[in-house]
Amino acid sequence: MCSMASRASFTAAWCVLPARVLLVLTSHKGIQMYESDGSIMVYWHALDATEHPTAQAVFARGIAAASGRFICVGLSSGLVLVFDIPPKGTNVTVSEVLAEHSAAVTDIAAELGHAPDGAGDLVSADDSGALCVWSSGEEFALRHRIPALGCSCSSVKLWNGILAAGYGNGQIRLYEAASGALRARVDAHARWIYALDVAPATGKLLSGAEDSFVHVWQLGRSPDTGDIEIEHCHAECVPDTQVCGARFCDARGASFAVTGYDLAEIVRYSRA
Rank of each mutant, 00 (worst) to 15 (best):
P86D: 13
K88R: 13
G89H: 12
T90A: 14
N91F: 07
V94A: 07
S95I: 02
S95T: 14
E96K: 09
E96I: 05
A99Q: 11
H101M: 04
S102W: 01
A103G: 06
A103I: 01
A104V: 03
V105G: 07
I108T: 00
I108C: 04
I108H: 00
A109D: 08
A109T: 01
E111I: 15
E111P: 15
E111S: 12
G113F: 00
G113I: 00
H114A: 10
D121A: 04
D121F: 01
L122R: 02
V123E: 03
S124N: 02
S124V: 00
D126R: 03
D127N: 13
D127A: 10
V133A: 02
E138V: 07
E138N: 13
F140T: 05
L142C: 10
R143Y: 01
H144M: 07
I146M: 03
A148V: 04
A148M: 06
L149H: 13
L149N: 12
G150Q: 08
S152V: 11
C153F: 03
C153G: 06
S154M: 09
S154D: 09
S155G: 08
S155N: 10
K157D: 08
K157Q: 15
K157P: 03
L158D: 11
W159V: 06
N160V: 01
G161W: 00
A165S: 15
G166K: 07
G168P: 05
N169H: 11
N169A: 12
G170C: 08
R173G: 08
L174K: 13
E176A: 14
A177W: 00
A178V: 09
A181Q: 14
A181R: 14
A181M: 13
R183P: 01
D187W: 13
D187L: 13
A190T: 11
A190G: 15
R191Q: 14
W192C: 09
I193C: 11
Y194N: 15
